[in-house]
Design a protein around this nucleic acid. Structure first.
Lengths: 340, 340
DNA sequence: CTGAAAGCGCTTACAG
DNA sequence: CTGAAAGCGCTTACAG
């Protein structure tokens, strides 16, 4: 039904090799010949068959994005940025949700490789990524990690300036007179450790001593999804901290924990910011709809996604094959609203 | 580098045709022969090359999802449901954002077809979809529309029970004593018309007369994206209605308009629900984070997505090729919180 | 600068 | 039940 390169060649009176060469700009072709081909192409309304080309070139033009939890808006926005940047290079993105399950993550990676993806972007569920070494050994597929730093596997990474972001937020809280700031993280991974480091730095710079009891780290084994978070671990952590009656401000480590913690404040009717200041890492749309609206350290998930696309494309097209692994940090910034 | 069907055939001592047949279960093969092939497959750790198979079969195993506005959480959730259901059949989804631009929509459809998608799911920007007739005439690609009904093109559709949902919401408001309910829609498309119909039905059933001034329909030409909506058209419409001083309740037609309208209420400090009841079509996460939390008519975007996947898969696999176009309605339900 | 030809790895009539 | 062979539509050494 659809016209092939042969028919173009015939109509143009040249060989298929020549048609291919003008189509792909892969060899010098005499202008007259080129013109003949081009008119034939437009006369027949020829479109290259990407299935044949992909097969021939051994590429699929799809990048797999393996996401720890797709119900998290943060990753949805990463996906959007990734999609946009890769589509510029003619790539599609295959999204795979892991629902915070390592087993699903491994299965997803396996399936993607079996379906011949050209590259992998991974927001890993747990940090241990040794399994990748094994699975990838027969595949020449570049990998970029986003948001969380893996161990057991080295590759390019795109991360937020976690340390600096938390530092900025805590510093601001301190500047507002808060000396006892609760830090709530529902997880305890490399990312959270960096953010806690920012907390410590701000304290140190202000000459304050950190009370370790105010840092509530979570458990990585707990599966959390944004939809069931109103009374999750962050809720409990906020409750504990506030019932202890010491902290005057709460800083939550990501959007997931902000939901649980803020929901607690709301339920027990603690006036923000009068009785309790509140700030979170990760900006979300809903933070500007609450009363008062909530200040946040904003990440740029869209940028994280698009930069990841960039990096993986460079690897695929071998522009940087010899370069060592890169870590790109995407800036964060303070968005002040009325909760502090 | 990777092992091919030939090598499997050689090791098993059979022809490639036979290997193919046991792999695909496409012909009866003697059990002994089958066993030989299977041991060879596992010995060589053979995996079929999907690029070759797709090329041969003329399919890409990807479905394009053309989305009017991917910054809208509603569509993100549709995408997630679609992804999940299609992945069960070995399909990937190629997401394409149109940013509410018809021109981009057309370009996206074109690009997807050029990259050989096997099917198209479309949440159209504008309702006029005549362009599809033309573009699709050389392609045997099934289409499913979601959320909005197109004209100028007929295909399967998956929509919410818009009429019934709005009816439920308005009926509840009326039951609470409201007789002057403002209906704010930022758009004026088939979907909104259905929701307005539900509004009228509830009024009629209650023996109330509809005041047309309370129905503020929007303009389809205005591009709106969730991120810039705090002071958009719904904000203005809410302002107008409330300054006129008649309505005692506000019902917004979708999540986008709820943002603008609620933000107005918030800015001018109108107590909800005491001075003004509030309810919206489209549930969103943030509706449970406001004070008071906001009641909504909940759609099920995830289900809309997964059902769309179902329908398009049936069309692709020709299970229903002779059937006329289907319209599937996904139920909505009332989620009561504290804004009414 | 151009073309004839091999070949990528499958599937699928067709013959036996 | 099994196999030999054609062919899907490209790209790419290779020869001239």
């Amino acid at each position: 039904m659809s016209v092939s390169i042969k028919e173009v060649a015939k109509l143009a009176g040249v060989s298929v090799a020549t048609v291919s060469n003008v189509l792909n700009n892969t060899k010098n072709v005499r202008p007259e010949t080129k013109a003949k081909v081009e008119t034939a192409v437009s006369q027949l309304n020829y479109q290259i068959n990407p299935l044949a080309r992909n097969f021939r070139k051994g590429q699929s033009k799809v990048i797999g994005f393996v996401v720890s939890d797709l119900s998290n808006y943060f990753f949805q926005n990463v996906a959007i940025g990734l999609e946009r940047s890769l589509s510029e290079y003619g790539y599609h993105v295959a999204l795979m949700d892991c629902k915070e399950s390592k087993a699903l993550e491994i299965e997803n990676v396996r399936n993607l490789l079996a379906s011949s993806v050209d590259g992998l972007v991974i927001a890993t569920t747990g940090e241990d990524c040794c399994y990748l070494q094994l699975i990838l050994e027969n595949h020449d597929v570049p990998v970029v990690f986003v948001d969380r730093k893996p161990f057991g596997f080295t590759s390019d990474m795109v991360l937020s300036t976690n340390n600096e972001g938390a530092y900025l937020g805590i510093k601001y809280l301190i500047s507002k007179g808060h000396e006892k700031i609760g830090f709530i993280t529902s997880r305890n991974d490399s990312t959270m450790k960096e953010r806690i480091e920012g907390y410590r730095q701000a304290y140190q710079e202000a000459g304050l001593k950190v009370n370790e009891n105010y840092i509530m780290t979570g458990n990585n084994d707990i599966s959390i999804s944004q939809n069931q978070l109103l009374h999750g671990i962050a809720y409990t952590q906020a409750k504990q901290l506030i019932e202890a009656g010491e902290v005057t401000a709460l800083f939550t480590g990501n959007n997931l924990s902000s939901i649980g913690a803020y929901n607690y404040l709301r339920e027990v009717n603690i006036p923000v910011p009068d009785k309790m200041a509140f700030m979170t890492f990760d900006d979300s749309f809903w933070l500007s709809m609450t009363t008062p609206s909530i200040s946040a350290v904003r990440q740029d998930p869209d940028m994280i996604g698009s930069v990841s696309g960039q990096l993986i494309y460079e690897r695929i097209s071998n522009k940087v094959s010899e370069q060592p692994n890169r870590i790109v940090r995407i800036p964060t910034r303070l968005v002040l609203r009325y909760s502090v």
